[in-house]
């Protein structure tokens, strides 16, 4: 899956109430592109069958 172009990300940021300049849009686009491989890997990977679907398990792990 490809990363949305910078102008699309800028529009999304504006819709969510953030005002970001062109440099910032370029930087955030680059960051999204940089993370995309790892993120795409997660999207494609099925969840383990042991209950990881509920992120509350992550909190439970650190509870004594």
């Amino acid at each position: 899956m490809s990363v949305p172009p910078p102008e699309e990300l800028a529009a999304l940021a504006a819709r969510l109430g953030y005002s970001v300049d062109e440099d910032t849009v370029a930087a955030l686009h680059a960051a999204v592109v940089g993370a995309e491989t790892a993120v795409a890997r997660l999207r494609a990977r099925p969840l383990p069958a042991d209950g990881a679907a509920d992120p509350a398990h992550g909190d439970a792990w650190v509870r004594p």
Partner: peptide, 27 residues
């Protein structure tokens, strides 16, 4: 601004998948 702006455009489904990944790493 440059660093945290990345988080503005993270889709909710990706953020939640990241929290599920947290559990996978814990495993």
């Amino acid at each position: 601004v440059r660093r945290i702006s990345q988080g503005i455009v993270t889709p909710a489904v990706d953020y939640l998948r990241a929290l599920q990944f947290r559990v996978e790493l814990q495993r």
